[in-house]
Amino acid sequence: MDQTVVHTTAPTIAARMRVQDYLCACGLPQPIIDEWLPELEQESSDLATMLAAAQQRLNGWLSSTLEIADADQQGLLIAHAALPYWQGDGGHLSADARAAIAHCCFLATPQEHPLAMPIQKIILCTPGVQITNLFTNICHDCLPLGRRVLNWLRRV
């Protein structure tokens, strides 16, 4: 999939605006965006590279602010998803927000606690099978009109 390169390298200003929009859409506080943008511009003028860098920076910022281990991708994603709702004043996450994510209350699934569910045996007895077969065979196979009726029923 690496060849999925779209030829849309925007001019620097447009790229800067797009990255600004992106970080804003992420829910990042404006003072932090203003702080990051010049640094991101210095790193690259290519939009795709700038966006990737912005993402990386965001992840780093989330992991340091919320004390999430770098390897905890799930935790980072959860924090990222909740960012717009946890903004504190002055461009920093509130203590509540940090506490909430620390408790992982937004974890989609809990830790697994498996329980086996073995397939049970049901011994079918011939009378049941025979009665069912009798009915279905009479209706489906033996009646000359069976198939025609079936087709009609499917249409109706």
Binding site: M1, Y22, A25, L77, I78, H80, L83
Partner: peptide, 24 residues
């Protein structure tokens, strides 16, 4: 695909796993 928090939310809810070459 577009909204970063929704994108992150969805990714966080996907089970981990890898695809075969053919699926990729």
């Amino acid at each position: 695909l577009i909204d970063p928090p929704i994108h992150a939310l969805h990714l966080s809810m996907l089970p981990s796993g890898s695809n075969s070459k053919r699926q990729q």
